[in-house]
Amino acid sequence: MINVENINFYYGKFHALQNISMGMEANTITALIGPSGCGKSTFLRLFNRMNDLIPDTTLTGTVSIGGVDIYQKNVLVDDLRKRVGMVFQKPNPFPKSIFENVAYGMRVNGMNNKKIIAEKVEQALKHAALWDEVKDKLKKSAFAISGGQQQRLCIARALAVEPDILLMDEPASALDPISTSKIEELMFQLKEDYTIVIVTHNMQQAARVSDHTAYFYMGELIEYGETKKIFTNPDKKSTQNYVTGRFG
């Protein structure tokens, strides 16, 4: 599904990602772990070209999704981002109603049919396991619900665009344990329809939810493999030190 070959990424002169190659299969959850500043968020943001927004950055190598190089000149960035949804570290709903937050993606893509929008909003909210909690207050401001609910709203918002891939940048780091477990449950369900890449600081979370795990350190991909293997019997000493909490 996603294929990365010989990626090098620079912020100005800083070499943030060094010679990374890896592939991710459809309908799996891949966890990216590593200490702060190791480049895992930068790596994640390559897949929906979010790094394009940062001035003075350079990328070499190829990133392809579904066999297409997404950094080719004829790829439209906004079309790409419709296929690759993203959930951010902190819940970032728009200062609009709950309904309008979920409908936003459809509206910017030119959907005007009210009935279809209403149907899809409901579907997305159900998918994100939020429908029962907010169905009576869809017109209320998105800021009126709790942080955990806001994050699920952001997931629903991403799902409403019907992407193939869902990128999650530490989606539970700002949440309480109960909200976190709800989001983890949700990821299991979403796996059936989506390919998920998640960045996390939380080792247990990575072990619980992911099929594959990639360990990054100082901009390099140290080890990548099945989650079970990474957490129980890694090839590299550095990986073992990190996953056992001896460092990082």
Binding site: N48, M50, L53, R81, G85, F88, P93, V108, V161
Partner: peptide
């Protein structure tokens, strides 16, 4: 907030849609 603009762009909105919405 940058987060607000990123959220809009990540949903496939163009730069102009993000500006006026």
């Amino acid at each position: 907030p940058l987060a607000m603009k990123e959220a809009s762009l990540a949903l496939g909105a163009t730069r102009w849609q993000t500006v006026y919405k």
